[in-house]
């Protein structure tokens, strides 16, 4: 297999893989609310409530206790 063929295969399969991952991600984003009760739009609040005295949207220490 010469380098050009290798390049072509590499290109094709990696692109196909990346496309699958990207579409999988879209699927995940838009079904997450139903499946896990997780709403991505909540994260937008990170910017709006960003004072040092504001409560974090997801506190880091809570998760670590799990």
């Amino acid at each position: 297999m010469d380098i050009a063929t290798f390049q072509a295969y590499g290109y094709f399969f990696l692109t196909a893989f990346m496309v699958l991952v990207l579409y999988g991600y879209i699927w995940h984003l838009y079904t997450a609310k139903k499946k896990y009760g997780k709403d991505y739009e909540e994260y937008a609040d990170i910017a709006l409530h960003d004072d040092i005295t504001d409560k974090p949207v997801e506190k880091i220490s809570d998760e670590e206790k799990k």
């Binding site: 991600y25 879209i26 838009y30 937008a44 910017a47």
Partner: peptide
């Protein structure tokens, strides 16, 4: 702009999901 526009206008980003998608699209 993802930080300053929402913050200055007091409006949440229209779609956080779209922002994530555009990110990966752009990277790739």
């Amino acid at each position: 702009i993802y930080y300053f526009l929402p913050k200055e206008s007091g409006q949440a980003v229209y779609s956080y999901k779209l922002s994530l998608l555009s990110f990966w699209g752009l990277m790739f």
